[in-house]
C-alpha cells in the first residue's frame, strides 16, 4: 500500500472537490509519480491559477503558489527563470489556461521553458457553477449556454504543440496507471511539457448533459479513450467520437533557461 501521508498536508483535508470529481485521482497519481521520480520536496514548486484544479497544490507538501486567474504560467516563468534548479509544476484548468490565460499558455510553449503543465480538462467552469468553457463541446449545455453551446471547442493539446511545446500528452482519470506514467514522462522531459488530463466535471457539466453520475462519466472515459497504438490502426469512421490518449508529441527543442545560460556564457567569453 502506497503511503501518501508524507506528501500531503493532512490538516487541509477534507478537500474542496465534489464527490465523484476526478481531481483527487490526479492528486494521487501526481504524488505517486513524483515519489517514483525521487523529486525532493524542497526543490519542487507547484504553481496554480484559479479554479477547481488550481486547488491541488494546497494539498501537496512542497513549495506552493496559488496565483491569480490565468496567470500561473507567468508566475511560474518568473520562478523558473530566477531559479532554474527548481522543479516547477503548474496545475491549471481548461478555462484558467486556455481562456483567460491563453496568452501565457502559447508563449510559455513557444519559449519552451522547462515547466510541466498538468491541465485538468473538466469541460466547464466548475468552481463558478458550470459556465461554458473553451473546451465545452458544441451542443453541450452550460449555465451560460442553456440552449447548448454554439461554439466549437479548443483542441488544447494541439494548441500547445503548434505553439512549440516539446512534449504534449493526454491522459484521463479512468486510466489511472497510464496517467501516472504520463505525469512521470511530462516531468522528466526538459522543456515545456503539457499533459492534458480529462477529468470531466459530474456536478456542473455531466449533470446538465445526461452524464450526471460519476460512474457514467468513468464509463464514458473508458469507452471513448483509445491509445495511440489503437488510434493509428483505426479508420476515420472508427475514430468518430473517440479521444486519443498517450504521448501525442515528443521532440527535442532548445529550452529557455538553457538558452539564457548559453547567452551568459557567450558574453563572458567575449568579454
Amino acid at each position: 500500500m502506497f503511503d501518501y501521508l508524507p506528501y500531503i498536508r493532512e490538516w487541509n483535508f477534507p478537500h474542496i472537490w465534489c464527490s465523484g470529481c476526478g481531481d483527487g485521482i490526479v492528486l494521487k497519481a501526481l504524488i505517486r509519480a513524483t515519489d517514483g521520480l525521487g523529486i525532493h520536496r524542497d526543490e519542487a514548486v507547484m504553481v496554480s491559477g484559479i479554479g477547481c484544479s488550481s486547488r491541488t497544490p494546497g494539498y501537496v507538501d512542497v513549495n506552493t503558489l496559488h496565483t491569480t486567474h490565468g496567470r500561473a504560467l507567468a508566475f511560474a516563468t518568473g520562478v523558473k527563470h530566477a531559479s532554474p534548479n527548481l522543479n516547477v509544476i503548474v496545475v491549471t484548468g481548461d478555462g484558467d489556461a486556455t481562456a483567460i490565460g491563453g496568452n501565457h499558455y502559447i508563449h510559455a510553449a513557444r519559449r519552451n521553458i522547462d515547466i510541466t503543465v498538468l491541465l485538468y480538462n473538466n469541460y466547464i467552469y466548475g468552481m463558478t457553477g458550470g459556465q461554458v468553457s473553451p473546451t465545452t463541446r458544441k451542443g453541450d449545455r452550460a449555465s451560460t449556454a442553456p440552449f447548448g453551446s454554439i461554439e466549437p471547442p479548443f483542441n488544447i493539446s494541439g494548441l500547445a504543440k503548434a505553439a512549440g511545446a516539446s512534449f504534449v500528452a493526454r491522459g484521463d482519470v479512468y486510466n489511472v496507471k497510464k496517467l501516472e506514467k504520463l505525469i512521470k514522462l511530462a516531468i522528466q522531459k526538459k522543456g515545456f511539457s503539457l499533459l492534458e488530463i480529462l477529468s470531466p466535471c459530474p456536478t456542473a457539466w455531466g449533470r446538465r448533459n445526461k452524464m450526471g453520475h460519476p460512474v457514467q462519466l468513468m464509463e464514458w472515459l473508458r469507452d471513448s479513450t483509445v491509445s495511440m497504438e489503437k488510434w493509428e490502426k483505426m479508420t476515420d469512421e472508427e475514430r468518430e467520437g473517440k479521444i486519443r490518449t498517450g504521448v501525442l508529441h515528443d521532440v527535442a527543442r532548445p529550452e529557455f533557461t538553457d538558452e539564457y545560460a548559453k547567452l551568459v556564457k557567450r558574453l563572458k567569453a567575449e568579454k
Binding site: V47, R71, A74, G78, A82, N103
Partner: peptide, 17 residues
C-alpha cells in the same frame, strides 16, 4: 514577457525565490 499582466506575474514569481 508576452504582456503586461504576465510581466507582473513573472516578477512576483522571481521575488518568491
Amino acid at each position: 514577457m508576452e504582456d503586461e499582466i504576465g510581466a507582473m506575474g513573472s516578477v512576483i514569481g522571481a521575488a518568491l525565490t
